[in-house]
Design a protein around this nucleic acid. Structure first.
Lengths: 292, 292
DNA sequence: ATAATAGTGTCTTTCAGACAGTATAGT
DNA sequence: ACTATACTGTCTGAAAGACACTATTAT
């Protein structure tokens, strides 16, 4: 034991290289919502849900698309690393950042043992244009859809086994990628195990399809009971725009009157209105960050 | 760049030791609920909420109490490491395990850069007795209480700053430790930052007071909308016992009729009753892991 | 009988879901 | 006038909160 020396001596003689250590990285899930143009002058533009991916320029997974991210340096916290990567990859620095999950399977990365902490971040669409002008040639926004494709439940005496297959679709102007993620929830007596597994992930590097699926699930959950969606909104917005954001993230249609009741306390109306809309103008609102 | 060689050659020549790497550990929050004896033959025993801590036998923080845990080996996933540590420290292997958060501040550990992933685990009280017999001399269950002590909100034009001071109290037969954790939530425009900081943590090693506070908060949240509390219950239990568990975790009193309505779908009644209670016997229930 | 707990009924308020209705700019 | 959207009112049923009442055992 080391009880017989002082803490100071112990620390001075401590050899950190005694054990082999894994590399630690951060992976960023950067989501935004943008608008698609419409032909019909009356119709509102549709919203799309987007994720930022980077084309890998080197091995491994060369040419595949990956989440932006990188190694955590010794002199920065993992959260600082997350902010740094975000700045480096997107030039956007003021936004929402939340730690998601730490992925620690042994063979996630063919190079060496890599443990990765993923972060969820949300960018508002008004800043997206700045991003589009950016010269990072191999960074691209992909339209994301995640949909439950198949569900299978086997009931046993002691519990059950639920298997869900999710389809993740990532689309840019030039390419479409589809991944299938299998989520297996086993309940046996009081033992609960959830296993997330990539069944198929064409074009997506590493285990990133799994991370993306997890992030979207978290976002869908959190949007229901927190203010998180406002990080995707510009300073001023209409309630219909806000509703559209909820709808594309949740992948459902919502009833207008009910939606407005639900979010009423989170917004403050302004005196401004939209114009030139081809229909009745809409009042603009802003986020109420100080609800009573 | 490495684009001109094959992936195979790249991987063969990859030198993982190029960069300095942090150590990675897991820290386990093992909670249980146990009963305190009563003098009055009529009265029900009170429940207490307990956390397992280990007395540090070596530097650093020698003699202080820490969360059970240890280094992640190169050939195991972090989840496997969590299960292994749990087995090593407690001899209990079938229980609930959930990843909590990864703590990555630069100077969390005086030895070297250590990144730690914390796991929340719940043990049912019937297995607790086995544990008490265990010879791990320096492992001890502490009664936990976490209570908001002070709250301060400063409202600015752009948002607000909320500061909360939580009192964390850990009590065993022989000692009492108190820590104060400050949570600072800053909202400025659309920028939200949450900072968790240890103000005072006498007797608790590392930043573990912070981790404990975070874990209890998560548990309090999850108990409201999931089945998680049943992992703290034995096979058969009365509804009053279940209610007591909710009450000590949430640190509030609940109304019996309403509580029973709320958890009705999660339990199945049996034909058994408690006896020798000094009052009306109570029906025993079991967990319904298969609700419709 | 009594103390302590077990267990149920019901009133009220709140909130979610569904739907129907009215209002208004731009062409 | 017409189209597409903006915005509001209200009915219903479910769920949350509060409280009061009855039932049953060991001593």
């Amino acid at each position: 034991m080391n009880n017989n020396i002082s803490e100071k001596d112990f620390l001075a003689s401590y050899d950190a290289s005694k054990y082999e250590r894994p590399s630690v990285t951060v992976d960023m899930l950067v989501f935004t919502v943008s608008e698609e143009k419409t032909e019909n002058y009356r119709k509102l533009p549709e919203k799309t849900f987007k994720l930022l991916l980077i084309k890998r320029g080197g091995h491994p997974y060369i040419g595949k698309w990956a989440l932006p991210g990188g190694f955590v340096m010794m002199n920065e916290s993992i959260e600082e690393a997350a902010y740094r990567e975000l700045r480096e990859e997107t030039n956007i620095d003021s936004l929402y950042l939340e730690q998601l999950y730490t992925w620690g399977d042994v063979n996630r990365d063919p190079r060496t043992r890599v443990i990765s902490t993923s972060y969820l971040s949300l960018v508002d669409s008004s800043k997206l244009n700045i991003q589009a002008n950016d010269d990072a040639d191999d960074a691209k926004w992909f339209t994301v859809t995640l949909r439950l494709q198949k569900e299978e439940k086997n009931i046993t005496e002691q519990g059950y086994c639920l298997m869900q297959y999710y389809n993740l679709k990532l689309v840019s102007e030039s390419e479409t990628m589809i991944a299938v993620i299998k989520i297996e929830k086993t309940v046996e007596g009081r033992i609960v195990k959830i296993k997330r597994e990539i069944v198929d992930s064409e074009g997506i590097a590493f285990d990133h399809a799994k991370i993306i699926e997890y992030g979207i699930e978290r976002l869908r959950n959190k949007i229901e009971y927190t203010d998180i969606a406002f990080h995707l909104m510009p300073e001023r917005f209409t309630l219909t725009e806000l509703q559209q954001v909820y709808e594309i993230i949740l992948d459902t249609e919502l009833l207008k009157a009910n939606f407005r009741r639900k979010i009423a306390d989170m917004v403050i109306e302004t005196n401004e209105y939209t114009k030139d809309a081809g229909h009745r103008p809409s009042k603009l609102f802003r986020y109420n960050h100080n609800p009573c």
